[in-house]
Design a protein around this nucleic acid. Structure first.
Lengths: 213, 213
DNA sequence: AGTTTCGGTGTACGCATGTTCACTCAAAGC
DNA sequence: GCTTTGAGTGAACATGCGTACACCGAAACT
């Protein structure tokens, strides 16, 4: 359209698709997917409304793609936290590294985190379900990670999952709070300090936890 | 309109207002306030669209009223939990009573809890701010309650608030999960069992917590 | 009894929405 | 070189939206 550069057809389509995803993420920033119109997106992207259908069946379909995309970056974050470099870390180290990593990634992918936080509660049913499912996957992965830590040998699978659920809940809330901090450093620091303390409290509780036989 | 019974003007207005609030709560059940139109509400209530303005300035204004209403019932719940009858309860007793009370109230005010869970993340800015403020009030009240428990004498005000923030976060998540359980008893039981365990973990951690001097 | 107040009505407006359909026109495939 | 494919176009539609305005009629006030 703009440039006559050698650009394969598939590449151009992919560019438009990206543009739609990005514009949608920005446009529903203050409201929700359920209040986002196909025409708004099309106008922002610079295509005619009907061209939207070449890429997505509906706004809901677009939403599912955004969920997938968001969780790709989230998974990258979790992998980064998990890379513990062989050295057996103290709990404090785990906590500090986790919170710092979270803070960093929320900062880099603010749009995605905002999107997930919103649509988790307010999105179309299919979108909500997908998000819920992905979060459950995170809980499961965290549970297996915790099981590898020393001192959790006598834990039941049930208790492991309960604990990881609690931690994930706290981390989700922390991510929301960091997003709400809006980039102001002092507000973000307060949030991450609180998160660190909360995680330590939970882990201290977990260490003295005894599974019922 | 329907009945020619002796009904004062103010009473009738109040009835219509209630009807608007109730209808709005139902209509935005699957979507959000930001996707709710004045005309939908008017049609559901059985009045003409312009009559809406006799009661609220806008949908956002309606939303604020719904927030207030929701937190009235929430406050009632918290008061019920707090009524600890003089006898010094064990932590287990506190936990069990709290979760049971929460479960009961979510069941009774499902609509309100759903509304808060959604609009907290997706509502119009003013609505989000009001909800955020009300939740902070809950955290503060919980903090002063915790301060009255034995074993927390050496805690700093900061740590108290961090702990109550964690507990409130967990309880909000629990409330959402109960709502999502959709009334199926076995699902609800699973959720409340998890919540009980999580609260115990947190409290055990809190008991062995030492404030930094 | 006369007047005011005020929920609720009905019409009308300009604008945005999702979706349809027939189309262009350049890259891709033969 | 000719044909096919398919992303993007542009006009048209029925419907829904928020809001403005003049109006009604019964309760409330004087």
């Amino acid at each position: 359209m703009t440039a006559s550069t050698g650009e394969t057809r598939g590449e151009k389509k992919e560019r438009t698709r990206r543009s739609i995803l990005d514009s949608a993420l920005v446009l529903c920033e203050d409201s929700s997917l359920v209040a986002l119109s196909l025409r708004q997106v099309a106008k922002e992207v610079g295509i005619v409304p009907t061209a939207f259908y070449r890429h997505f069946d509906s706004i809901e379909d677009l939403g599912l793609a955004l969920v997938d995309e968001s969780f790709v970056s989230l998974r990258a974050m979790l992998r980064a936290i998990r890379r513990s470099d062989g050295t057996v870390p103290t709990f404090t180290e785990i906590v500090d590294r986790s919170v710092v990593t979270l803070e960093e990634h929320v900062h880099r992918h603010r749009g995605h985190f905002r999107f997930i936080a919103r649509e988790r509660a307010a999105g179309p049913p299919a979108v909500k379900a997908r998000i819920h499912h992905e979060i459950q996957l995170c809980e499961r992965e965290l549970a297996t990670d915790i099981a590898r830590l020393p001192g959790t040998d006598h834990w039941s699978a049930e208790d492991l999952h309960v604990l990881s659920g609690l931690i994930v809940t706290a981390m989700v809330a922390t991510a929301e709070a960091i997003v709400d901090a809006g980039g102001r450093p002092e507000a973000e620091k307060r949030v991450s300090d609180v998160a660190r303390t909360q995680l330590r409290m939970v882990l201290i509780g977990a260490l003295s936890w005894k599974s019922e036989p």
